[in-house]
């Protein structure tokens, strides 16, 4: 059980770092990609919490489709935040 705890803390710190980077950076493309990384890490946390259905959905939607939609929209509007 202890290895699950260690893994959960590593994943939690990764998700926290990705989320803070996504909010703080000026480059919107990096921000969207960091958001996707946070979603992917959270999907592994769902797997640790015994929710495989939710993990599949979050991995393909959070890390794939949401990020693609954001990147396309940023491509239409402008990459840098003043």
């Amino acid at each position: 059980m202890i290895e699950f705890t260690i893994m959960a803390w590593i994943l939690a710190l990764l998700a926290a770092a990705a989320a803070i980077y996504a909010v703080e950076t000026k480059d919107l493309i990096s921000s969207a990609i960091a958001m996707g990384v946070a979603s992917l890490v959270v999907s592994i946390m769902f797997l640790l919490l015994q929710a495989p259905d939710v993990a599949i959905t979050e991995a393909s939607i959070g890390a794939g489709i949401t990020m693609a939609v954001f990147v396309y929209a940023i491509g239409k509007t402008g990459r840098w935040e003043e």
């Binding site: 495989p52 259905d53 993990a55 599949i56 959905t57 393909s60 939607i61 794939g64 489709i65």
Partner: peptide, 9 residues
């Protein structure tokens, strides 16, 4: 594990 929502995505 899975179903319509994960499969569709």
């Amino acid at each position: 594990p899975g179903g319509g929502f994960p499969g569709g995505s």
